[in-house]
Design a binder for these strands. Structure first.
Lengths: 203, 203
DNA sequence: AGATGTGAATGGGTTCACAGCA
DNA sequence: TGCTGTGAACCCATTCACATCT
């Protein structure tokens, strides 16, 4: 079954919520309850779950732990995927703070910065190196994805280096539109644009 | 003209790109060129611009500076909207780093943290206060929007305080789904979910 | 000639509504 | 009874196609 970006986004969101519920000792959930968590409808939840082939029961709804497994089977890569982060300023460090790996298949293992004072440190299991080691570490550590948290002025050049080094996808926090070949998957997360959207819709 | 979330997101993105082009001395643009920047189609760009009532000319396309004004007239609030940020950890500081106000109508003016060592400092024109001044500052400074960058354990309680204090919209970077009244506009930006999406779609 | 503006067609995502089930 | 699973219906977003303009 092939699904859209939207469905994937909702599935990983469901998984996060379900993992929290499971931690709290909840073991079953109905589509309408899960829908409430994400401000969505029961029909939408059921349709999304249908996409991945998992089936609940009319009486008990969905078994949370089985549903988590089904979502993981569907959305997670088969092998682990290694990730690097470029730029260890406030943003880079913030991202590493938030990376208590919910998903054991995705590992942020290397960080790079041009500032020597930020190299050879370790945050949350991620080791940092000087930016001029970028290409060799990406190859040696079989890194496929990158998180970009560098200043605007450096983002395009670094992105091009990443691609030449074999990176397949980029999560871009630099507030610039990267010009890259279309076979590279790029997800942009411009913080000011997000705030502008909130400003428009809030009341 | 009432438009969807999607259209607003694209419009603010167009504006960012147009502002950069203008800075580079470009003054006119065709729909297909703008479409290329955002991996979209000329028809989509023209339709979006049609929504806001701006008209280009067949020969020269769109006048960038006039188009920026039209987008701003459409998406910006009529009065300035004040924003606060809660949590001055790495993430909070990172967000302030990125806030060289592209949009003069949206001002991040106050920051709050529970750590006294992070209060009474100023970053990019934003002053920080202790969290127990939250309610009074929000009222005194007429703050309507909030950016939440606190640890998970505190996010829900802080969000509730924000709403009681009169906040209308929240940009939430804490990796938790807030349970709030539906009249509050919340935009969630979970970084790990974004990475999971990239991992799924990248090649 | 080559762009825009836009009604109409298309396509995809969401919701409805109901059969089936425990 | 009250849920799920799902074909069908609906609705919104995107794209097409062409008249129009300079």
């Amino acid at each position: 079954m092939i699904v859209s970006e939207r469905v994937i986004q909702r599935l990983v969101l469901y998984r996060k919520i379900l993992q929290n519920l499971l931690t709290d000792g909840v073991t079953k959930i109905y589509s309408h309850a899960l829908g409430d968590f994400v401000d969505s409808t029961p029909a939408q939840v059921r349709r999304d779950i249908m996409n991945i082939g998992y089936k609940g029961t009319p009486v008990h709804g969905y078994d949370i732990s089985l549903l988590i497994s089904s979502i993981s089977d569907f959305v997670d890569p088969t092998q682990t995927r290694n990730v690097c982060i470029i730029g260890l300023g406030n943003l880079g460090k913030a991202i590493l703070d938030y990376c208590h790996a919910r998903n054991s298949k995705i590992n942020i293992i290397d960080a790079f910065d041009k500032d020597p004072s930020k190299t050879n440190i370790e945050i949350n299991g991620c080791k940092s190196y000087h930016i001029n080691e970028l290409e060799t570490k990406i190859e040696d550590d079989r890194i496929e994805l990158a998180i970009l948290s560098v200043p605007i002025s450096e983002a395009q050049a670094i992105a091009e280096r990443l691609i030449r080094a074999g990176i397949k996808g980029i999560l871009n926090y630099s507030p610039i539109e990267l010009r890259l070949p279309e076979y590279i998957y790029v997800e942009n997360r411009d913080m000011m644009l997000a705030l502008e959207k909130v400003a428009y819709f809030a009341k």
